[in-house]
């Protein structure tokens, strides 16, 4: 407001220049990926002039769509991420409610065991986890991808923090009306914590969607693979060109980019809440 009266100060101009130059540099890899995928096979894609002038073609996309099960992998990724997210929210909200509002034997102990798990990365568990999956006969199945992600102490932690902040008067009032714990959970805590759950859900979904190491170990067959594992597998067959791998990259990223464009406000809010609250 204040600055509009005067001419834009130099520092402001510098800021604009800096901001937009950086964003441009930031977007180069993505832009280059998209343009390269549109160039016919064998053309030079490192000379900027050639990149920005025709010919362009959709052949690479056609090729990838007919030769790679992109939709199948996208579905696998989506299914695994969606189930993981929904079940995580259900399990962790129930557990967080008990930890926040109920008295029971061993509460402190259980709370600390869950909190301690907060910092155990999946990466440190791959060997035993793999053996457990083999014992359960689950290797190469959706379950093997979903189950380990459900042991999510972060969700319990976030939701418990939120539940702790809900005023006790609400609970007492409901009690007087004769509501049981489940009723209180269902009709007071769940509606109030909708935004926390959304935040947790978005965070869980992105983590699962981009998970690489575990699906890379647990899946043996192409048709069961999620996108992050399937894409390098598909690309490894194209050693002499880069248009087809790039087209595969674009197709694999498209759903995530679209979702991000439509829901970016929620996604960013979600991450903020998971991090800060």
């Amino acid at each position: 407001m204040r600055s509009r009266k005067k001419k834009m100060p130099i520092s402001r101009k510098v800021l604009y220049l800096l901001g937009y130059t950086m964003v441009f540099i930031w977007l180069i890899p993505v832009l280059w990926m998209c343009i390269t995928a549109l160039k016919p096979g064998g053309s030079a894609v490192t000379v900027i002039r050639d990149l920005l002038s025709p010919p362009y073609t959709l052949d690479n996309y056609n090729y990838v769509l007919t030769n790679a099960s992109i939709w199948n992998w996208t579905w696998n990724s989506f299914y695994v991420a969606a189930v993981t997210t929904i079940v995580t929210i259900i399990l962790t909200s129930l557990a967080a409610f008990a930890l926040s509002r109920m008295q029971f034997f061993g509460k402190t102990f259980i709370f600390w065991v869950i909190i301690a798990g907060l910092m155990v990365p999946v990466e440190a568990k791959i060997i035993p986890l793999f053996q457990i999956m083999i014992d359960m006969g689950l290797i190469n199945s959706y379950s093997s991808l979903i189950l380990p992600g459900l042991a999510a102490p972060l969700g319990v932690f976030i939701l418990k923090q939120f539940y702790d902040g809900i005023p006790n008067e609400l609970v007492e009032a409901a009690r007087i009306d004769g509501a049981g714990m489940l009723r209180i959970f269902w009709s007071i805590f769940l509606p109030l914590s909708r935004s926390s759950m959304a935040a947790l859900g978005i965070f869980t979904f992105i983590t699962s969607w981009n998970n690489f190491l575990w699906p890379f170990l647990a899946i043996n067959e192409e048709k069961m693979m999620t996108l992050p594992v399937a894409i390098p597998t598909f690309q490894s067959a194209y050693t002499a060109e880069l248009m087809i791998p790039m087209a595969a990259n674009v197709l694999a990223s498209l759903p995530a980019i679209l979702v991000f464009i439509f829901f970016q406000k929620h996604i960013i809010k979600g991450i903020t809440m998971t991090g800060i609250k």
Binding site: V83, I86, V87, I90, L91, L94, N140, S141, Y142, S143, I146, L147, L150, G180, M181, L182, R183, N220, E221, K223, M224
Partner: peptide, 26 residues
């Protein structure tokens, strides 16, 4: 209320098992 809590728990567990059990046979 005891019953409903129990039912909910069973229901949730079974949804979750179904969700995970829906694998294509590989």
């Amino acid at each position: 209320k005891k019953v409903s809590a129990f039912t909910l728990a069973v229901f949730l567990l079974s949804t979750f098992l179904v969700a995970c059990g829906g694998d294509s046979d590989s």
